[in-house]
Design a protein around this nucleic acid. Structure first.
Length: 475
RNA sequence: GGCCCCUUCGUCUAUCGGCUAGGACACUAGGUUCUCAUCCUAGUAAGAGCGGUUCGAUUCCGCUAGGGGUCACCA
């Protein structure tokens, strides 16, 4: 790549709520591609639908992206050479371009009311026809248009799609895609409220901001012909398109949707997934490293990523694999790092001093950060012990004796550490020739109330002498 | 339904005409072990169907089937 063809990619979320995991995955690809070629990654806010705007959404979106560890070179908060990066602040641009199109007879004013359009649509559906604009205002004389505009008739500007034309564009992932103009609707470009629709705004802004590559979800394939028509009408060279497959629900059925579970990028962080494992997961969904490496750093990804290598089919969002990756990342964390990451997930009633001792005990067991509480709460919260379980593998008499002897032996320990505890317990087991697994499990249950815990002796050490003896003697 | 896109193990993928079809997750079995987890070893499991092209098709082409997307003054 030479300097005159600098790679510039962008992600353009709408402030209609939380940013979707799929969008975050898309953002990663745009980010990586720009970085790979020392280009720029731009963040732009597409707030052209006033009715769907959610207050505070912009700042939450920015915050979430940062929480994933990704940044942008130009954007709404930091500006840049093509500012502003918020579409609602660029309105005059869109109107100007739309009017230019009308002047060129590539677009037209449409005065149809929503009611009229609704009615036509309903009829078309009833007659099993394609619901689309029928061209009512396509042939209005310029005099007629001028009169209606002068009368302040609400009007939109629609694209005048050449129905006989065949529209073709290249997609990095799928090759050439061809669509007949007859199948493309006369899309509204400028709404009655003066705001542009997505279709006008993206094209105008992507051109204005010198975007070189558009990596976006495949749900946009069917509207790309409209965009291509606009680029042509303006005499602009279209950017390179790559339509990335979208996420399907974990069962592989249907587009990943809210109805099947949380889908916001933030929610995965809140569930205790590490941003780096999420990013890694996005990397290997639908794409693979040349050596089939699955655990990758961002740097490695940037080095090898090429959108042309992305597999063209949609992918199931396999949470099981995400969980595996998250475990891998958690295990690789240093203790101090783990402590830092864990902070938001530590229950308020868990003493901070205890947490440090707990970390080595649970680190290799954690799948998500939020597992911490369930794996450790018995250390600092009262437990209940299932009596029948206690005597599952031995008679009540034997259990009673084992507990009694163990309690007194442990009481005698001067320096309460894992070593001393292990020596005492192992000696008792050997002296009395008790069944090892029965005896160890009994102690485990007695002090923790759980059957699955960290190793016995280190657990007892961390639990502390006082609490251990209390629990043993209570039974 | 129209249009567009897609089709290798359950899932994500490797293969770019020579395949005994490889890897990862998951699963199963075994090892380590005081339980769980980690770790190690092994195993089950796939190129949708039918036609072409070719000496040879998972790989190229067509049809069928299936899946996905899209058909707003939403993005």
């Amino acid at each position: 790549m030479n300097k005159s063809s600098t790679v510039r990619t962008r992600m353009a979320p709408s402030p209609t709520g939380e940013i979707h995991v799929g969008s975050m995955a898309m953002l990663l690809k745009n980010y990586a591609y720009a970085k790979k070629y020392s280009g720029k990654f731009i963040l732009r806010i597409e707030d052209t639908d006033q009715t769907r705007e959610v207050p505070g959404a912009v700042s939450r979106i920015l915050k979430t992206i940062k929480a994933y560890g990704l940044t942008w070179d130009e954007g709404p908060d930091i500006g840049g050479p093509y500012a502003p990066y918020i579409q609602s602040k660029r309105l005059s641009l869109y109107r100007e371009r739309a009017e230019q199109l009308v002047a060129q007879d590539k677009a037209f004013y449409c005065f149809c009311t929503r009611e009229q359009l609704e009615k036509v649509r309903a009829e078309q559906i009833a007659n099993k026809q394609q619901p689309k604009y029928v061209g009512t205002c396509r042939q209005l004389s310029s005099q007629e248009v001028a009169n209606r505009l002068a009368d302040k008739h609400p009007a939109v500007i629609r694209l005048k799609v050449p129905k006989e034309e065949v529209i073709t564009f290249r997609d990095l992932i799928r090759g050439t895609i061809t669509v007949s103009g007859a199948d493309v609707d006369d899309q509204v470009l400028l709404k009655t409220d003066g705001f542009p629709t997505y279709h006008l705004a993206v094209v105008v802004d992507d051109h204005a901001m010198q975007i070189s590559h558009i990596l976006r979800g495949e749900e946009w394939i069917s509207s790309t012909p409209k965009h291509v028509l606009l680029y042509n009408a303006f005499g602009w060279r279209p950017p390179v398109f790559a339509h990335i497959p979208i996420f399907l629900n974990p069962n592989g059925k249907g587009k990943m949707s809210k109805r099947k579970g949380e889908v916001s990028a933030q929610s995965f962080l809140d569930q205790g997934f590490l941003p780096e494992s999420l990013l890694n997961f996005f990397m290997i969904l639908g794409w693979s490293h040349p050596e089939q490496k699955e655990v990758l750093t961002l740097t490695e990804y940037i080095e090898h990523f090429d959108p042309a290598d992305i597999s063209p089919n949609s992918v199931a969002f396999d949470i099981v694999k995400l969980r595996w990756l998250n475990g891998v990342y958690i295990r690789a964390l240093s203790t101090t790092e783990l402590l830092e990451r864990l902070k938001p997930f530590i229950p308020p009633d868990c003493p901070l001093e205890l947490v440090k001792k707990l970390l080595p005990l649970v680190q290799e067991r954690l799948v998500t950060l939020s597992d911490f509480e369930q794996y450790t709460d018995f250390f600092y919260r009262p437990i209940s012990v299932d009596q029948t379980r206690l005597c599952k593998k031995a008679t009540p008499e034997l259990v009673k004796e084992q507990l009694k002897i163990t309690t007194s032996s442990l009481t005698a320990i001067a320096t309460w550490d894992e070593q001393a505890i292990e020596t005492v317990v192992r000696n008792l087991q050997e002296q009395h020739n008790w069944n090892k697994s029965q005896y160890f499990m009994l102690l485990r249950l007695a002090v923790s109330g759980q059957t699955a815990t960290p190793p016995l002796f280190s657990m007892i050490e961390v639990l502390g002498k006082k609490r251990t003896l209390e629990r043993l003697s209570l039974l």
